[in-house]
């Protein structure tokens, strides 16, 4: 009985759903690229949380392996993503994504 299991699984589900939803809405409605970026991270972490919880409850370590994968990918993504963002900022002098509308019909 690990410490994780002291809290009922439903609470984990609620928490990660709320976190994920916050991430989704952040991506949808914010225009600042940095915040969108952070919202994506939030979504990833919501999933991570759930994976760890279930891994513990089901005594299956595969879930935790996935979490490590996701963290590694997220790290790489942050590297690339921040690089893009800094380039965007240098070119447009703003982090606003609505400035990036050149690629259309």
């Amino acid at each position: 009985m690990s410490i994780i299991q002291t809290i009922p699984i439903e609470w984990y589900l609620f928490l990660s759903t709320v976190l994920f939803a916050i991430g989704v809405f952040g991506v949808l409605f914010r225009r600042n690229a940095i915040i969108i970026f952070m919202s994506i991270e939030l979504m990833l972490n919501a999933v991570n949380l759930l994976l760890v919880a279930f891994s513990s409850y089901l005594s299956d370590s595969k879930g935790q392996v996935f979490v490590f994968f996701i963290m590694a990918v997220a790290a790489a993504e942050v590297a690339v993503g921040l690089a893009i963002l800094s380039m965007v900022y240098r070119n447009t002098n703003s982090p606003d994504i609505n400035n990036l509308n050149k690629l259309k019909w």
Binding site: V27, L28, I97, N101, K102, W105
Partner: peptide, 17 residues
């Protein structure tokens, strides 16, 4: 159809979601 290609990232993400 190409009019759907607005260039607005928010719109794309919205459609995706």
């Amino acid at each position: 159809i190409r009019l759907a290609q607005t260039g607005n990232i928010g719109f794309y993400v919205f459609v995706m979601v």
